[in-house]
């Protein structure tokens, strides 16, 4: 197992290196002169030369690459063109909001999906099962930003129960203010994930319930509830971990768009704003950070998985 974890670690380091390289190449693929793109049509040659120097674009490409990579390793992603703020500083201001959104949406989705998936499996081929299936199909087919708008319409505009937009700090505004601001956007992001998870749990539980060891557990006279909780559920919940890593991308991507709908100044809103301002250092930094978070989260999930599922041998 140690060998597997080590191999996974090395693989992740390579992927992160690849991501950094890809992001480096990306900005150099901008058609025309990226400096002129950033400064706009009414630029002065002096300003263009200064920005060229600042971004290191006046040097040969291999030196640019070595310097960029060295800076990334030191945690220095350069400065914003429009505000002068450091890229890390800008990202730091948005990251807690995006991560809060991702985490709460993950929790909400799990809380909805686990009981629904179990119920659907236990009530197989009944109206309850069909209803869960239909909801799951709709869940994966819905754009999260549209569902967000519908939630605002319903719970903020019509019922007035929850705030429609904005973000409240956990430390300054309290737990309820923080949670109430996150509830609707998290639901919007988590719906798709909940739908997928529900189907996984249903399928997993049905498979486990038909297996020999469950028949043995029943044959030795265990109560149905004990068979379900002690034997079936434990194994059928492994998919929750398996797809958690993959689905993190979905939740993070969802957060990027949902921040626009709910006016939350997280990573996504900063990224989209930077694209419109042609503030490429911020665009580079935000994309790289999301990729790194995603790779690391998958690494953690894979490692947890090795402990959870002893049946699998990692040779």
């Amino acid at each position: 197992m140690t060998q597997y974890i080590l191999r996974r670690l090395i693989h992740s380091v390579f992927i992160i290196w690849g991501c950094a390289t890809l992001v480096f190449i990306l900005i150099r693929l901008i058609p025309g002169d990226p400096v002129i793109q950033m400064l706009g049509p009414e630029y002065s040659p002096e300003a263009a030369a200064a920005l060229n120097r600042k971004l290191g674009l006046d040097q040969p490409i291999y030196i640019q690459y070595v310097k960029w990579f060295g800076s990334v390793l030191r945690g220095d992603l350069g400065g914003s063109i429009s505000s002068g703020e450091s890229v890390i500083g800008a990202i730091k201001s948005g990251l807690p909001k995006t991560l809060s959104l991702t985490l709460v949406s993950f929790l909400i989705a799990t809380v909805i999906a686990v009981p629904a998936g179990i119920l659907a499996a236990l009530k197989r081929n009944t109206p309850v099962d069909y209803a869960v299936s239909v909801i799951a199909f709709i869940g994966v087919s819905m754009p999260s930003f549209w569902f967000g708008i519908i939630l605002i319409l319903l719970f903020a505009v019509r019922l007035g129960w929850l705030p429609a937009i904005g973000y409240a700090s956990l430390t300054e505004d309290g737990v309820w203010a923080w949670f109430s601001h996150l509830l609707l956007p998290s639901l919007a992001i988590g719906a798709g994930y909940a739908a997928i998870l529900m189907r996984f749990i249903r399928a997993g539980l049905l498979e486990v319930l038909g297996s020999d060891y469950i028949r043995t557990a029943r044959a030795k006279g265990l109560a149905e509830q004990r068979v379900l909780v002690r034997h079936a559920l434990r194994n059928s919940l492994i998919p929750v971990v398996t797809i958690a890593g993959i689905q993190l991308a979905l939740l993070l991507s969802g957060a990027v768009v949902i921040e626009i709908v709910f006016s939350i100044r997280g990573l996504g809103r900063i990224l989209v704003g930077a694209i419109f301002d042609k503030d490429y250092p911020i665009v580079q930094g935000a994309i790289l950070l999301v990729a790194v978070i995603f790779v690391l989260a998958n690494l953690v999930v894979d490692i947890i998985y090795t402990f959870l599922d002893p049946r699998i041998h990692y040779g």
């Binding site: 992927i15 690849g18 991501c19 990306l26 900005i27 901008i30 058609p31 991507s253 999301v290 995603f294």
Partner: peptide, 19 residues
């Protein structure tokens, strides 16, 4: 693997930002 490391919307937004 590298492509997979970028969530779809992040990758598409990045590419549209560049091109």
């Amino acid at each position: 693997d590298l492509l997979w490391a970028f969530p779809v919307i992040i990758l598409t937004v990045g590419l549209v930002a560049v091109f």
